[in-house]
Structure formats: C-alpha cells, structure tokens
Design a protein around this nucleic acid. Sequence first.
DNA 1: AACCTCACG
DNA 2: ACGTACGTGAGGTTA
Length: 890
Amino acid sequence: MATDKHLLLIDGNSVAFRAFFALHSQVNTFINHDGLHTNAIYAFNTMLDVVLKEFKPTHVLVAFDAGKTTFRTKEFAEYKSQRAKTPSELSEQLPYLRQLLTAYGIKSYELANYEADDIIGTLAKEASQAGFQVDIVTGDRDLTQLATAEVTVNVTVKGVNQTEAYTPEHVMEKYGLQPKQIIDMKGLAGDTSDNYPGVRKVGEKTAIKLLKEYDSVEGVYEHLDDLKASKMKEHLQEDRSNAFLSKKLATINTAAPIKVSVTELKRQERDLDKLIEFYKEMDFNSFLSKLDSAVAPTEVAAKTTIKFEQLTNENIKQVLAKFSGPVVFYLEMLASNYHTSDFAGFVIGQEDHWYFGRDIKLLQQPDFVAFFADNQQAKLVFDLKRTFVGLNRLGIRLNGTTFDLLLASYLLNTNDNSNDLGKIAQLHQYSDVATDEEVYGKGSKKALPENETEFAEHLARKARAIEQLQPKLSHELEANDQIGLFNELEIPLALVLAQMEIAGIKIDKDRLNDMRGSFKERIQQIQEKIYAEAEEEFNINSSKQLGAILFEKMNLPVIKKTKTGYSTAVGVLEKLKGIAPIASDVLDYRGLTKIQSTYITGLLKVIHPEDGKIHTTYLQTLTQTGRLSSIDPNLQNIPVRDEDGRQIRQAFVPREKGWQIFAADYSQIELRVLAHISHDKNLQAAFKEGMDIHASTAMRIFNLDSPADVTPNMRREAKAVNFGIVYGISDYGLSQNIGITRLQAKNYIDNYFREYPNVQKYMTDIVQSAKDHGYVETLFHRRRYLPDINAKNFNLRSFAERTAMNTPIQGSAADIIKVAMLNMHKALEEHKLKATMLLQVHDELIFEAPDDEIPVLRKLVPQVMDSAVDLEVPMKVGFGSGPTWYNVKD
DNA sequence: AACCTCACG
DNA sequence: ACGTACGTGAGGTTA
C-alpha cells in the first residue's frame, strides 16, 4: 500500500469538537498559565500524532468551517440552527490549532460559504483522480458518502485516538448501503443535529429498508404507488419536498471553488523551535519531553536531571537519621501479581535526596525495619496495598503511611483509572517521570533496562513525582470534601485488604480434583449426544460453528444476531429448547464446561504451592462506583445460583481443623440506601416494618389489599421492578427482563412512582444535579464524573443518566461495607479473636474462625455491620456458618 | 486484541 | 426515532 502519493484530509472543526469532548471531564484541569483552556488542543495534538504515524501521508490538509452562513443556509435557513452554540471553552482554542498545525508543517484551509466537508470532498475527488491514495479523518459519519476504492473515511470512535475505517465495503457492512446512498438515507431520515427534517417518522432503520428496495430517494418516489397504504406512505407523500431538500443538504459538494491544489499540500518538516515555543505557551510538558526524546532519541523521555545515591549496609543508619518529615518510599515489582513477583529494587528519600537499592535484603536491616514500623514516621507511597504486601513478604510491617498517590488520584477522578505512576502523573500535569511501558517495555519483552542507572533514575523520578504531587492532590481532595474518605476510609482499608489477601483462603484440592473427574465424564457424555444430534463433530465452544449447525444445517429459526453472526446466548437457546433438544443439551454443555474451565481447573492453577491457599488481589482503584474488584483469581463470582456450580464452594474451607467458615451479608442494602437518600416515606415504612420488600412493592404496584393476595409471579415482577429502579429504569429494559410488553412495563413504572413519589423525585433531582455539576456523589463523598450527561447523542446521554441514578446507590452501599470492614478488622483485634476476615463480595463478608469463636461472631459481626452507618432505615444482616463455604447456613 | 459468553453482586 | 437495564473478571475462539 505504500505510495508516494498519499493525502490525509482532516475535518478540523469536527475533530476539534470530538477532541474537546474526549477530555471534557478535564476541561478545568487543562488550563495554561494564561487561563486558556487547552483540552481540545491537547487531544487534537494526540490525534494528529496518531494519524500521522498510522497513515504516513505525503500530503496533508486540515479543513475548517468558514462561518455560519453557507450555501446550505441559503437553501434552508434553519440548517444547523438548532445547534447549541459552540462552548466558549472550545472556540477560544480554535485559533491555537492553526498555530499548532503551522508548527507541524501542515496547511489549514477554509472557504467562505462552504463547510469543511465540501473542501474535503472536492480535494478527495481531485486527488484520487490524480492517483493519490486518500484518507479522511472526521468525527462525522456523513462523510462516509465519500468512500471509494481510493478514498477511505476514518471516523473517530472512543474519543479521538481511534478511528473506524469506512471503505465502501465497510459502509455496506454497517448500513447495507453503498456510500452514495448515505445521502439518500439522510434525505429520508433527516438529521436532528443539522436540523433538517427528512420524512416524518422515518429513521435510519426505515430509510435503509426503503433504499434496499428502491435504491435512492428518487427511486422511492417513483415507486410510491407500489407501497401498500400505510401511515408511512402518507408521510412519504406529504414530506416529499423535505426528502429532496434534505438529500440536497446532506450532499457534500465535490466541486467547491477552492484555491489550493493538491500539490501545494506536501507535508513539511515540523518546525521544532516553533513547536517548543508553542508547547511552552500551552504548558504541554509531556509533549515537550517527547520532543526532547525525538531530538535526542537515546535519552529516556524526561526533561530534567535527577541525582541518586546507592543505598548500602554502611550508609543506612546515616541516611535514615538525616530524614525529617515525610519520606517517600517506592518498591518496584515488575510481574503482574505482587504476591509472587520478584523484587526489582526500591528507592527512598525526600527533597531530592534519593537512595536507590537493588538488594532487597537491605530493607530487612533492623534500623530499616524499625523505620517502617514507626507510626510517627510519615511515609508517602504509590499503591499502599501493593507496598504493604511486598514488605510483608520480607517480614516487614509498614505503618504510618499518610499519602498514596494512586488512591488519591482514583478518588479525585475514577475515570482516570490507570495503575501506572507515569500516566497518573501526566494526568495531573506532571511530566517529569516516564511510564513503566516506556522504561520496561510491555508483554513478553517487559524487562529491567540493561543500564542500571536508567532504572535507578526511573525509580527516583517516581519518588520525586509522589513527593511533588502530594500537596496538589491533597489540596484537591480537600476542595472536594474528600479528606475524610481518603484518610479515614481508603487508606486504612488498603491495609485491611492487604491483610485479607495475605491471609488467603484454604482450598480443598482433593475435592476440586474429584469434581474435575466427574465433570469430565458428564461433559463427554453430553458432547457425544450433541454430535449425534448434529450428525457431525464440531467445536461446541465456537459460537460460529455452533451457529452454522443450528441455523444453517438444522435450519432453526434465528432469534437474534450479533455483530459478527448468529447469537447463541442463553436467551436464544432457551427459546429453541422446545423445538430442538440440541439447544437444551448445548446449554447443559455450556454450564458444565464453564464450571470445569473457569472454576475447577482455573482455581487449581492458582493454588499457592506452599500454603495450599488462594490469594486474590483486590483492585481498590478500578471501579467507577467505589466497589472493589477481585482478580487473579476473581473470588467475587464463585457460583451460587445453580446447584452444580455451587458445589465449587465445597472446596473453600477453613485453614485448620476445628475451624469453620462464617459468612454475613447485608440484606437489600441498595434499596435501603435508596430509601435513605430519597427520604421516601413509603419505601422507608416497608423496611421499618420489616416487610418482605418485593412483596410489599407488589402490593403497592398491583394495588392489592393483603399480603396473601401477592402471587409468586407478582412478587417476581415486583422484584424486577425494584432492580430496575436501582439501575435507572427504562420501560424497555424492564419489559425485556420479565417478558412483558413495553406498555405494561411503563404501567408498572408509573404505578411505582405514584406509590413512591420521593423515589421519583430523587431520580429527577440527581440527574439534574449531575447535569449542573458534571458529577454525582455517594454518602461518603465518593465522586463520579459523568462527561456524557449533557451529550447530544441519545444513547450516551441516557447511559449517563442511568449512571447518575445508580452510582450514588451502588457507591454508597460500597462505602458502607468498607466502613464495616474497617470496624470489623478493629473489633477482631480488640476482642483478641483468632477469627480472620478473608473475603468481601460486595455486600457480604466471609471469615474463618475456630469453632468456639463462632458464637462470638454471631453476635459481633451483625452488630458491627449494622452500626457501620446510621441511615433513616434499619440495616438487616443475615449470617451463617459451616464446615465449608458451601455449607454456611444459619 | 476483539468478541462472545457467562459467573457474581 | 433513537436502543438500554447498574457494576465487575475470565475463558475460549477468531481475526
């Protein structure tokens, strides 16, 4: 494909717009020293680097819109008139984009009365006739009408760093239309964002159907008489002129009177002096340091120098004695699992005195051990839990941590959930530290740099970044009213989680091995049955092959399709059960193989060879709501709903004979949280009276007088409504979930909101608050930004709205159990119990304890969990114990 | 690496 | 008209 004639055309306004919203959540952190917003410039620059690298064009042009009036507004005064004004934070950035492009040696162009689209269309045509390969980059799908064999239209997805390439084939795949029919589709469907009408009640779907039949708008109207009488036909007739007008508006002009020719667009070298000046003006330190490494490519990307000294047995005493005030400590482990990873090295220091060591035994020197144990000696770290576990493996107890850069960054913005110090530093405008990928590489090539100085300097830079970012992030936490959440919840919780991970849970390996044998036989039997039914052998695990068998060979009805083929998901197979026994067998097969691969062999693989336990890793800084997640292995999704899978829990046992597993869970914690934050009297009454909440909801939404009138099916439906409420309900979602019509679902929801009016008020208010502030909060001030809450795109916006409703509920529940865990950990210590907290599964805590402590736990655990917070409704905690996790019962 | 499927709260 | 339930992780296949 390499050619010496490759033209890249960028739709400047459209990409700038996408760039602006890609970093919209950070619009107030991307401000330069003159108070100029820079988020769109930054993201635009990133995009530019990506596409230049990807397409390696010889010629480049960025086209901009010239102004509001164009030949289209002459045609149709309302064109784009509904469009909200470009935010001033964005429009102030546009002139600087031109500066950036100039420094990059790239021409930009605009033309009075024409839009950027028309410039691009005209040049694309001209260039492809002149033998150029052309790539267009835009955020606007309308441009896919320009796709040809020579012209590829790359539409930005997920921000601006990724594009989807529309060739004519891809347009066909996506829409089932040829590129030139895109304008016919727009003609019929109209475009709300550009504010032209199309035909009433005709959307993309209907338009595509019509065009497949009649090819074009003209074709549709020529054959209008063939259509049988319908509302749609009436609309088509009435809106005929709109359809033709809309098509005209959607059509890109490929003969605009432009004054540049392709040959003038040859890409020039970047003007490094200009670019450096520009980046300094914008405070783009990360781009600056990249530029440095481009100028002097052998050096690690960082712009200042750093000094360090080797730590040795001889100087430890003096080094430690000299410290005063908070000390930064960073321990490096390269492998993904820190419970088993080798130690690579460490750095310790303060105020630009950094001490580096590769020999981990140095840390075990008594002065050092005492230093770590000293609660009065403040330490600053990155990833406290990881550091605690690492030191614990060396027999060292870490106390006195006052700051964790990773945790602080997560609380400030859960959207930036990287675990890489370098990346996090960059997000906070600190660029003097490389990312691990830059220094160590990735995948199989990940390794320490050969040059030890480079390694030491990388660690020293990390330490310095922690120290320098601490005041800024602490200040931001304070501004967000999150100091309590940070100091009193997440920091101490990191230590509790670390100790749970370290404790691990004992596994009965023999039990798992026995199960492996019996599952293997059952799988074999059912596999043979399926082969017999299919009359051939195939890979049942392959949804593609399975689809071919079911829907092509056996001709079963296609219920649902996925992007790539036939869906064979549970719901589909359930529907086929009645007509084809093979569907039911495939379901059984899937159930068994899932248990076998994920839970039996999967868990056997991660049993620690020395202690026979499984040590999971909790991710404390990942979820958007404040929940934990569990990996390597995930112990938060061990089967419980089906009996076959549930038996896996028989392998989770106490670490010693004469001990038991004890488990306690919050009942309906999310609905209780909702009752609390909505102050809804009716919902609160149900909890205060200790009613069965789903039955209570059923009585209200079905208007029943007595609990005895609630049928099991009513309770089931009411339960689904309660779930739906928590998730941010929609009639469609509810109707799908319980198999009723959308109208019925809407009816249920209306009834619900009538019975629980303050819940409805909460939903309305929280969405409005999210729109006003850009984020929502939990009871404990955990924050989630919702950059899409004001999006024009219906899907993005709706999703953000549901998230706004759900996050305070799910997140507050997460806060509450975290408090309970802290208090529980303290209580076990205070009561000097041997009992150990092992696992957390969102609303549930699992312990192991000697038999004689079980009666103590039965009182203590519910009491501690109950009193974690004081809500307007009571908490309820269920609990039980038994010889294995499977057998816990009251 | 992306997709599908399915395990949990 | 739009097309969905909220939050996760892992194994297997396919590209």
